[in-house]
């Protein structure tokens, strides 16, 4: 616990700091000191990332904290496929309920398979509305939707940014790993 603050002594007219000395008033010491510090910095390693040439995650050699693709990065979604290539989603609508931005739209239909009752007929994510918070992934009880570290997603029209089920199933196939290491 901290000690109670003792008020500044009364004989210090400037309060929190002593007055400037005559040499400090002449600007010269500050200028010399400032140039000295800046010169020291000049010879230290450069922090800037040459972005278009060097990707945001390629800077392990440049003393940045993250040297590889961060598995927790919250990028674009995918719908995960099971062993038979079907979507894992059972249209329980939990992700729709968990989404704070209300960007997920699901219409369920009866599944033609024996191991589940429902599957999504329509599964749309409005990527322009999405705030990439990862709550859908957290709410999913069967690991059917994941956020991937995919970063670059430019499109030329707004309608392309509404991803339908096919797009989500094909999105970023290398992220179809068995289980994402998150928790």
């Amino acid at each position: 616990m901290s000690a109670p603050h003792t008020p500044a002594p009364q004989d210090a007219p400037e309060g929190d700091h002593p007055p400037l000395t005559a040499s400090e008033k002449s600007y010269l010491p500050s200028i010399v000191k400032g140039i000295g510090i800046t010169l020291q910095r000049f010879f230290k390693p450069n922090f800037t990332v040459q972005y278009p040439e060097v990707g945001p995650y390629d800077y392990a050699a440049q003393d940045r904290a993250i040297g590889e693709v961060n598995p927790r990065h919250r990028g674009e979604h995918i719908l995960v496929k099971d062993e038979q290539g079907r979507e894992k989603c059972v249209a329980c609508l939990l992700c729709m309920a968990a989404c704070p931005a209300l960007c997920i739209h699901i219409e369920p239909e009866p599944a033609p398979w024996d191991d589940r009752e429902r599957r999504p007929k329509v599964f749309e994510i409005d990527m322009l509305r999405c705030i990439y918070c990862g709550y859908c992934e957290e709410a999913c009880p069967c690991d059917a939707i994941r956020l991937t570290p995919k970063l670059y997603t430019p499109t030329t029209s707004r309608t392309e940014r509404v991803y339908d089920k096919e797009r989500l199933l094909e999105n970023n196939p290398e992220a179809q790993v068995p289980q994402r290491p998150r928790k």
Partner: peptide
């Protein structure tokens, strides 16, 4: 500019931990 460097390092820690630099949630 130096202060921005330190902030970037803090944000790297945040990103590694939570997945987001600015909007950590």
């Amino acid at each position: 500019l130096w202060s921005f460097i330190e902030r970037e390092k803090v944000y790297d820690v945040f990103e590694l931990t939570s997945g987001g630099r600015l909007t950590t949630s």
